[in-house]
Design a protein around this nucleic acid. Structure first.
Lengths: 106, 106
DNA sequence: TGGAAATATGCAAATAATCATATATATTTT
DNA sequence: AAAATATATATGATTATTTGCATATTTCCA
């Protein structure tokens, strides 16, 4: 990590409840946007906006598979911090209403 | 740490370059406000405001000694996070113009 | 006691972040 | 090729944060 300015920006990205929820979900498995929509109960555009913030911050990477875009965590520091502050006792929300191929298959 | 909302607020406090600089200094030793003023090159009222934010967030504790107030880190999670994101390669800024008893004695 | 030094607080202007809405693009299905 | 689905982007209104400045409070010392 560089100077205090960029470190502050890094923390700013984490200073958001929905982004934290998304990152916590991604720390378990890669998810498509529709999955995160169901998880967070937010409109698609909203989730997509947050994913851009996370992508621009270098915290997640995206991979397109057909119609779906799968996001995954790609930053070890973020993983470590999540573990530090959230730990493993986070609410294991099961998502019922996601119809992406990956969810339907399992 | 509790829910995502309070975790986000926790990160919000860290999402500030001057507060980060102050916390990094406190992670080495307790400092009075005048010391932090010299370090950050900000007006006294500015530093005092940031100290309130850190105090309200439960990250630092204050102890009055005569005219001076000494602040110290009092949150192990903050210490761990600072170490994670800043590490030990932070600029070791020596402060010349602080006249508090502690600084003058040494 | 009175003044100077150290620190804290209150408030307002400037700045930045959030979120809803509308719309665009790409892919699959029919 | 048109419709449907998944995702992305642009824009603007609202709200929150930052920061400078004036002033208050506390303590020390002459």
């Amino acid at each position: 990590m560089r100077d205090y300015q960029s470190t502050a920006q890094f923390f700013q990205v984490l200073a958001h409840p929905v982004r934290l929820q998304i990152l916590a979900a991604l720390s378990e498995q890669a998810c498509c946007v529709c999955h995160l929509q169901a998880l967070t109960r937010r409109p698609q555009a909203y989730v997509s906006q947050q994913m851009r913030v996370l992508r621009d911050a270098g915290m997640v990477s995206d991979e397109k598979d057909g119609q779906n875009v799968y996001y995954r965590l790609c930053n070890p520091t973020v993983e470590a911090l999540l573990h530090e502050v959230i730990g493993s006792d986070r609410p294991r929300t099961t998502i019922a209403d996601c119809n992406c191929p990956k969810c339907v298959d399992e």
